[in-house]
Amino acid sequence: EEKVLKVVTGTPVSLVWNQPLKDFIAAVNERGKGVVQVELVGGPEAVPVPEQFRALSSGLVDMHFGPNQYFQGDIPASQAFNASNRSAMDLRADGAWDVINGYYEPQGNIHYLGYFGSGYEFILLLREPPPEGGAFGRDFSGLRLRGTGTYAPLYDALGVTLRDIQVAEVHTALERGAIDGLGWVTLAATDLGFDDFIKARILPTFWQGDLGMAINLDSWNALPQEARTILNEEAAKAEAKAHAFFQDLAAKEAAAFAAAGTQTIELPGDGAAAFLDTAYASRWDEILQRMGEDDGGALRDLFYRP
């Protein structure tokens, strides 16, 4: 008997983030005829973002695609993806999903299937180039940057004031100068029109995307072996495809920024190293604090290679 799995996505369906999901669904539905099918129910309009974890965990939906940050309140280990600097392919080859499932399954009743965010990173986008100087080669102190709670420790270390402004208000805030810039990903800023106001992109990039695919553990256990094999193999293929897809998009984004006259500012060697140390430490300190030195440390060794 054919199993139909309902999937909800964490971002509006039309956005680029969902391309890997759409590819995955097409591949599974083609290969899985008569065995397993995946049906996209919708995005945040169907299940609001803060409650998507609950819907997946309780089995109201079978699968979830989207930022694993949504799970961080319940599963500390879900923060490892954002704090990683290794590709999905390398992580899979090292058996990282088994380690992750050691937390996802007991803590969230969720089975982790695949990681689709390693092709893009995070970046600081500013309205003006920051002055030279300081431990990072450029002085960020006193800037007001948009960010979420994730950025708080990093911004603290940089001397930046965190402004928690909603995405829909960022355009106006940039236009009016209510913020001096924002922490963002290496994609989709030009889609949102930020390039009209951003004059400086700061390199190196840091952290990386945390789009993931997960399935409710009961739904997973109820699947026949054949269906599980199809999902696993197609997830692996989709991971590699997504990595290339997002890398390509990030390159296009950088080109679009260059075309709009945005400067790329590279922090000098020592400054860049200090910046990256600070950025990654800000995430891993939190993970270690929540998971303990042993579990958190093991996770860090697997996900982060300085």
């Binding site: 803060p50 709670g149 708080a152 965190l162 928690d164």
Partner: peptide, 14 residues
């Protein structure tokens, strides 16, 4: 039971 946290700028018990 879960010790769930709502991560905003503050980490608030859910």
């Amino acid at each position: 039971d879960r010790g769930a946290i709502d991560f905003r700028v503050l980490a608030i018990p859910r």
